[in-house]
């Protein structure tokens, strides 16, 4: 079955149209001259100009970026540790509770996570701001990181670590010199996932942020509640562009390494 039947072609076309037309419309109308987002009135980049001068948005973007970098980095460290404990930790007291706490946040409605963290921060008298958002984001995204990393660790050939020990590594050296370089791609995708989740999050950030720290999604949400605005379209277009470039680059890189791996295998076959 090399060619698609008409039915499959139609499904794919309609499916991708459904997925992409809304975003394409959004992008087109970010270049609209008129304030009305549904009537085309000529090409203009003035909304981008206004965006650059909108200090509130820029501040929020800066806060969001800071939160995302910090939380995803801490989450990657904690999540990798947690994955290692889950896959390699053996038995310890409260293991079931531990794995439960790793998986529960993945399915927990954001409103509940947000509410519970807020109540905690108030309970211990922690002022809401960048710190509390970082804490909140780290907590839920470390669980995603640990799922990504542990799925890699499960397929990791344990004898590689044993070989490192056998050749004179301490356990810490074995992790640093052997395990980490090999699972690095999973750790990196964990970090990227945590970073995106943090950039994206509205609900948890709304609960845990204070007046001193507003993130971009919170800002967008309050603007959007009042209706569609071309400025938001422009902002969305920028964000979509960044993600698109990122994803395409990533997939090109993986494609290239796959091609390289294939070539290596052929070379190995010939070497025999």
């Amino acid at each position: 079955m090399n060619r698609l039947s008409w039915f499959n072609t139609v499904s794919l076309t309609l499916g991708f149209a459904f997925l992409y037309i809304p975003m394409i419309i959004l992008i087109i109308f970010s270049f609209n001259e008129s304030k009305l987002v549904t009537v085309w009135a000529g090409f203009s980049t003035k909304w981008y100009g206004e965006l650059i001068n909108n200090e509130a948005f820029l501040n929020a973007a800066w806060v969001t970026l800071k939160v995302a970098v910090f939380s995803s980095t801490i989450a990657t460290v904690l999540g990798t540790m947690a994955a290692y404990v889950l896959v390699r930790g053996g038995r310890f007291l409260g293991r079931t509770l531990f794995s439960g706490m790793i998986y529960a946040p993945l399915v927990m409605p954001e409103v509940i996570t947000g509410l519970s963290l807020l109540l905690l921060f108030i309970g211990i008298g922690l002022d809401r701001g960048v710190l509390t958002i970082v804490l909140a984001h780290t907590t839920f995204s470390m669980c995603y990181v640990s799922v990504v990393v542990s799925s890699r660790l499960v397929t990791f050939d344990r004898s590689l670590e044993e070989a490192a020990l056998d050749l004179g590594c301490s356990p810490a050296q074995a992790f640093r010199l052997v395990t980490l370089p090999i699972i690095a791609p999973a750790v990196i995708s964990g970090w990227l996932l945590a970073f995106t989740l943090s950039l994206d999050d509205l609900v948890i950030a709304s609960f845990t942020s204070g007046p001193s720290a507003t993130t971009l999604p919170i800002k967008i949400f309050s603007a959007v509640r009042l209706g569609v605005s071309p400025e938001i379209n422009a902002l969305s277009t920028i964000m979509i562009a960044i993600v698109t470039i990122g994803v395409i680059t990533a997939s090109l890189v993986t494609k290239q390494s796959r091609v390289r791996a294939q070539r290596d295998e052929q070379a190995a076959a010939r070497a025999q």
Binding site: P22, M23, I25, L199, D200, V228, I232, V243, V247
Partner: peptide, 23 residues
């Protein structure tokens, strides 16, 4: 990649995109 791409895009923006379409 085309299926995953929207997943990496902001959830909020994707919902917002429909506001202009459905009004």
């Amino acid at each position: 990649m085309l299926i995953i791409l929207p997943f990496w895009t902001s959830f909020l923006i994707r919902v917002y995109a429909w506001m202009g379409i459905l009004s």
